[in-house]
């Protein structure tokens, strides 16, 4: 096994998982950096032939949560109970194409967000996701389920049900100005 080559191959996925989790490329790269160092120092605990991507995701995910806990403590220290609303800053993430979706995703509880990303985007199986998140397969399923419901709720409220007019054009389409007779 050539660890440098292997880790390099998994790097795009590690980054994608990290950015999906935390919403910001700069923080994600710090996470990946942290993960690389940790993975390198405990390469001897990795069983060759097993799923290296899942192994790396586990390390990355744990690094993410310890960073999140640290940030929460800092925010609590700074100004009391604001930790609950501590979120990422989508306006700084530079991925404007998905800004609405990204904003909705960032509003999910972290455990639901990570389950949805693993199952719905990274292509992990429920079993792999359960191992990465250190929980039961059934728990992953219910988190994914709740994440989808919650996202649907957020997105349908914010876009006007059924992808109607978006929030900027909505005020124009008031009942009074609606010229329905034309159609």
């Amino acid at each position: 096994m050539n660890p440098r080559k292997e880790l390099l191959e998994h790097m795009p996925n590690m980054r994608a998982f990290a950015i999906s989790l935390c919403g910001r490329a700069d923080r994600a790269d710090d996470l990946v950096q942290d993960t690389l160092v940790k993975a390198w120092t405990k390469l001897d605990t990795f069983e060759p032939g097993t799923n290296m991507r899942a192994w790396l995701f586990t390390i990355l995910r744990n690094a993410y949560y310890s960073e999140l806990r640290k940030r929460r403590r800092e925010v609590e220290d700074a100004d009391g109970a604001m930790a609950a609303t501590l979120a990422t800053h989508p306006e700084q993430d530079g991925h404007m194409d998905f800004s609405d979706f990204r904003t909705a995703l960032d509003r999910l509880p972290p455990d639901q967000r990570e389950a949805l990303i693993l199952i719905g985007a990274s292509g992990m199986s429920y079993e792999e996701a359960a191992e990465i998140c250190d929980c039961a397969v059934g728990t992953v399923k219910s988190r994914v389920n709740r994440a989808r419901l919650r996202l649907a709720e957020i997105m349908s409220v914010e876009s006007g049900a059924e992808f109607g007019p978006d929030s900027t054009s909505q005020p124009i389409v008031t009942p009074r100005s609606a010229s329905r007779s034309v159609a």
Binding site: L8, A16, L105
Partner: peptide, 21 residues
Amino acid sequence: LKSMYDSYLNEPIPDRLVELL
């Protein structure tokens, strides 16, 4: 969700990470 993840996946790897390795 998929296209978001894929767009992240296709971003170039920052030099600092390659150098770290």
